[in-house]
Design a protein around this nucleic acid. Sequence first.
DNA 1: CGAGCCATTGAATGCCATCAATTTTAGTGG
DNA 2: CCACTAAAATTGATGGCATTCAATGGCTCG
Lengths: 240, 240
Amino acid sequence: MEPVASCTTRNKNNNHRCAQCSVRLIAFCGILDDSDIIQLEAISKNKSFPKGTNIFFQGDQVKTFFNIKQGSIKIYKLSHDGRKQIVGFLYPGDFLGMSDQEVYTYTAEALEDTQLCQFNKIVLENFFLKFPKIENKILNLVNHELAVAQDQIFLLGKYSARERLLQFFLNISNQREKLGWGGNPIRLSMSRTDIANYLGLTIETVSRTLSELKNEQIIRMIGTHDIFLNNKKQIPQYLN
Amino acid sequence: MEPVASCTTRNKNNNHRCAQCSVRLIAFCGILDDSDIIQLEAISKNKSFPKGTNIFFQGDQVKTFFNIKQGSIKIYKLSHDGRKQIVGFLYPGDFLGMSDQEVYTYTAEALEDTQLCQFNKIVLENFFLKFPKIENKILNLVNHELAVAQDQIFLLGKYSARERLLQFFLNISNQREKLGWGGNPIRLSMSRTDIANYLGLTIETVSRTLSELKNEQIIRMIGTHDIFLNNKKQIPQYLN
DNA sequence: CGAGCCATTGAATGCCATCAATTTTAGTGG
DNA sequence: CCACTAAAATTGATGGCATTCAATGGCTCG
């Protein structure tokens, strides 16, 4: 069903790779200064994952952590009877792979051609001892992930199909602004099936609801994956 | 709607309060040995919250962290239009109050008379510098909370009403076993309304589904809050 | 340019929500 | 201990939103 994992390593010897990294300010490496980040660079590897490839699988032993440099990723859980629930989409600057268990509790797959910065788990954990600030920063990132997951719980527990889609668009918009890109229009790097499996809906409901929003001039679509929010500020937000 | 917060402080001078604590082995304090835990004891306070009282409110400044010693707690989010979603139930050994933001993103309320161990946020964070092991342990606990939240996302996105209730009972059962209590029967310390607001259902659906499970001899009830799982091992589990 | 996948639209079904009424439980005071 | 009351839980009838089943349309990539 899913493509087999594959990737290419490009550990180039260009100096100061990390120092000039585009996501340095939002990823955990941001708390290290120029002199210290050289040491982090020494234990990291660049990895490239083409669209559709798996980064790791639910059930695999946890041996590596990742920072996302470029692209986007979906993480999803599969049940024994084949149901699939996407539990999150990850973007540049996000930290990937940490778990409280020995094995990954979800599968990670690239939604587009994606660049990752890879760390060996043991090596990075030893690095924490030298730079406790990093562990503190990662604790902060995980707490943020938890808050995002709780918002998603609210969405799935209480929102209608229309509310789920609009909230989803607002989340992507805010994510883009955080990265310094424009918050409108937005680009959906995932399929309708992925959106449905993330929002607890079916593809038909997603499609139908999108058509409604188009008819009511709340959104405008360019192709099937680019959306302009006609009046972003008027879209109701129920949390925060 | 909700009762006003109230609590009583009992910072007794009995020595080695922490050393003998019933949840020491599962809470974050478990990683400190007897000699170090005395220092942790010096910065902690015992607090008691009667049933129905609030521990803190969504929007309050984060100034304190808590360990749960005894009792149980619900944490919930309210939307502007009054919808309420319970995002978690917490039990002895759980860590409460950490946030990636300046303010709490949810309200915490005692489901029964509850004993907490309270820490000033700044003081405990300074304590981390002296004992980095604690921060590491808390990172582990937060990662676990995240994994639990992702399971809940799966439940809300993909499970039927019946599956949600059965999974809920299994979770409580496993939680009880983790605490060394019996895993069967289980005790529901929350109301039907709370269960509904946690599982993304209405009280009527919860009640009706419970009646079905009773009729089919899958569960047996003693009163309205004690449940015996007639054949726990035959209840299907779709994850893990 | 055709094949296959993805997305859209339509019609019918079903699960859970809503509205409404009754029963049971829990808490209080006599 | 029992009567009384309010809240909580259960049960019934009906309705609606999202799903399911089915068919068409449109994009993308050899």
